[in-house]
Every structure is written in C-alpha cells, then in structure tokens.
Amino acid sequence: MSRPKVAFFDLACCEGCQLQVANLGEELLDILGRIELVEFREIMSENWPGRYDIAFVEGSVVNDEAEERLLEIRQRSDILIAYGSCATIGGINGIKNRRPIAEVQHAVYGERIDWFPARPTRALHHLVRVDYSIPGCPVYPPELIKVIKAALAGLPYVVPDYAVCVECKFNENVCMYDKGVTCLGPVTRAGCNSWCINHGNICYGCRGLVSNPNQAGAKEVLRRYRLDPDRIVDKMTMYNAAMER
C-alpha cells in the first residue's frame, strides 16, 4: 500500500506550529514511516506538483493572495487539516479585526498603504471546508498526533467542547482564581491537558471558546474574585477576535 502524500503549508503565522512538528523527535520518525512527506518548507526544499492526500495548513487568511493560495490547496487536497490558532480561529492576527481595516493598514504601512492590500483576518473554515481542526498556539503535540492517526484511519476528531478546567482538575493544579489571577480556562476548549497552567502560566484562550460560553457568569466570577472584568474581555479577544462575526 502506498503511503499517503502529505504536505505542510503556512499562511499568516509565525510558523511556530511547524516547529512543533519538526520538534516531535522520535514520534516524527514513526509518523514519517507512515506517510510520504512531499512539501514542508521549514524542513525540506522539494515541491510536489500533484495531488495531496493530506494538507496541513497553518496561519490565517489576511489578504487576497492568501485566499487564492488556500483555495488552490483545498482543490488539490483530499483532506485539509487546519492547525494552530491562526488557522482554526484566526488567532493573534484577529486582533486587527477590532478596528476598521483602513485604520489598521495606515498604522502599519503609513504612506505605502496601497502596496499592501489587506483584508480582515479569517480562519480557514470561513473560506473552505476544513476536515480536521487542531487549535492551539502552538499546537499541543499529543493532540497533533491524535489527529494524524484519526486522519490516517479515516475517523473523525472532535475538539472537546468542555473547559480547560476539566483537564486542569485532572492535573490537580491550584486554581488560578485562588491565586488571584484571571484565567480563561473556564471558557476555553480543552484538549491541551492544561499545558500552560501545569507550568505556572494562565490560560490565554488560544484554543477558542467553548460553543456556549457563559459570558455573564464569567464576569460574575471576576467580580467575586475582585478582578477587573475588562481584563477578561482583553484576554478573550487576544486570540478570539476573528471569531466575532
């Protein structure tokens, strides 16, 4: 049986998720034994002119050029996997959507605004069909491997629709709210094994909000812990602004 042809692409992003793939170590060797890697700019120079069985796309769509590129990748791929916050929810790039596009362009490009046509940030699923999503900034390696297995086996993968708190409790971390810090764990989708909180950081909501977040309840929690409600709005829009449509 021939191995599936797999390619990795990037749009507007820091390419940090590709780095996570390149850094998988021994598990990367196991994966390479199961696939035929045909394009991956960060670790090889070859290109592939034919069809892709699986295309991984990192980054969000911020201009027409990226949109055309994404449409072409979609056309040439049987399975398209969006990975990283930028591709799945717009991520940090979405911050610019909070202001009129002309204002943002002017702030960045000044007089040369015409040289760099831009559009509001969009996640991949806003433009094309996405078969699998792996959220996270960067992606959490065990989840990445889980999705690769699912894609190879033709099985679905569903990003958990429950809070990071669930996995955080499994790990028995002292709750950030008990430490007097605002944390987005209660409204952010799990699947990362509370990666950041395990290492003493807060949850920044990089995986996107749960499908039905109780925003009024979350503000009430902040009031209860005497924390500034505006701070949670700032934190929520850091990664999730492009999802507000």
């Binding site: 196991d30 994966i31 889980k146 297995k149 429950y162 669930v166 409790k169 039905n212 309840g217 009430e220």
Partner: peptide, 27 residues
C-alpha cells in the same frame, strides 16, 4: 445563570463516576 459548565463540581466529587469510552490506535 451562575454555572460556567466547567465540570469542576463533578470531577472533584468522590461519588461521580460517569465516563466516556474511546479507542486509541497506535500509529
């Protein structure tokens, strides 16, 4: 109205035992 549906109450409960099942294949 207050509840964030985070599941803390059931995870920390000594008598909650609901579980889900999944198959985890090797590569």
């Amino acid at each position: 109205d207050k509840c964030l549906a985070c599941g803390n109450c059931t995870n920390v409960c000594p008598t909650c035992y609901c579980f889900d099942m999944a198959d985890e294949p090797e590569l």
